[in-house]
Amino acid sequence: MAPGYARRHMPRRNAFLFFPHRADFARAFIGTLCLAGAPALALALAAPSCLDTAMQAPAPSRALAMATFAVQEHEAFGGQSMDAEGRMTEAGDSEAEDTRRTVPSLAPWQRVLRYWEAVDPRLPTQVRFGGLRPANRHLLMQALNEATAGRLQGMGVGPDEGLESNELRAVQVALARTSVIDTPWSAAFISWLARQAGLADDEFVFSEAHVDYAGAAWQAGAEEAAGRPTRYAMRACDLRRTPPRAGDLVCQARGAGAELDTFDKIGEVLATRDTGGEALPMHCDVVVAVDATGFDAVGGNVLQSVTRRRLDFAPGTRWLDPSYLPEGCTPGVAGCIDRHMSRQPWSLLLQWR
């Protein structure tokens, strides 16, 4: 037999024959792309799972629970709202206010401290005062505890010196309220909602940074696309190609200046960044309602409150209207709707799996 005869005359086999199912081939190919350093392309090829889930699968019960808790917190904060053009239509309570809408309810600053418990009960700690570094409110309280009236009198100081218990409590509250103001809490809000919905530590990254749980969702999507198991609750999808459901998170890298204004660009960062790594300013809202013309989303620390905003679909579609995007259209030009405060580089959807 001449050299190469067998190779030339053997029946050509389709690559799919090496895999019992085409899905197995697709998963293996996508996994190879991930290993080869093409994460955005790999997840783009896996995008049908995002679209299929959005169009065919109802939102899971825990996703609906997350949306319900978000609505409740929005109401507890006074119902601050923005219309589809990004204009505030209802002013709510600010983060540091001490107002209580009912006698047993928590004040806004207390609610924010409760959100932080989902991340770390010791947070927030920052107290800014104009110095190069902020002070730590816990260390400040330790120092003040040394100056109570009872302690000073025990050291021989006069009876009119030092802080009484009510005065110490007042300073403690003032420091807590200051720390609430001085520390961004939007990711803590999302983390608290996730815990309230029943997610465990292997299903969600509870963090003070949106990028941490977004990166974990990106990794979960890559694992899923490669056919490997993951318990993470969400996957990363392209918001511009995937309709949201209640409970999903809609995200953006803060401001167009971040230059991470597309799914592919932000994916390049999420695919390689370790949890707790370099800072990446982001913001995410949780979708609480979807209808034929758009959706409502609730976010924390939006204009110093828990705010509900309306985002419209492009007419006749289930896709976010491009006028919300910095490059979508030019405000002031005929046919371009000015979205004001909602005009942001929305690109990432964290979809419940």
Rank of each mutant, 00 (worst) to 15 (best):
A200H: 10
T183S: 10
I181W: 00
A197M: 06
M234A: 08
E117I: 13
R114E: 13
C237N: 04
T183H: 11
L349E: 04
A256H: 05
P11V: 04
A170V: 04
P104K: 13
R228W: 13
S94W: 13
L144K: 13
R27V: 03
S179T: 11
G4P: 00
G79K: 03
A47L: 11
R228T: 08
S61E: 15
P243C: 05
A258H: 12
D312I: 06
H340F: 08
S179G: 11
L64D: 01
S61L: 08
C284G: 01
P184W: 09
M341R: 15
G150N: 12
G154A: 12
G156K: 09
L239W: 11
W218A: 08
R353G: 04
A46T: 03
A118G: 07
P184F: 12
A217H: 15
A258M: 04
F313N: 09
A91C: 09
A40G: 06
R151E: 10
L175S: 10
F129H: 15
V286E: 00
A118N: 07
T32N: 08
A76K: 08
D120F: 06
L144R: 12
E97F: 15
R254E: 05
A47R: 03
A209Y: 13
P244N: 07
R241Y: 08
W109D: 02
R137E: 00
P121F: 05
G299S: 10
E224L: 14
R62W: 01
V333C: 07
F29S: 09
A246E: 02
P243F: 05
G247W: 01
A54T: 05
A63R: 01
G130C: 09
L239K: 06
A65N: 09
E161T: 15
C50Q: 03
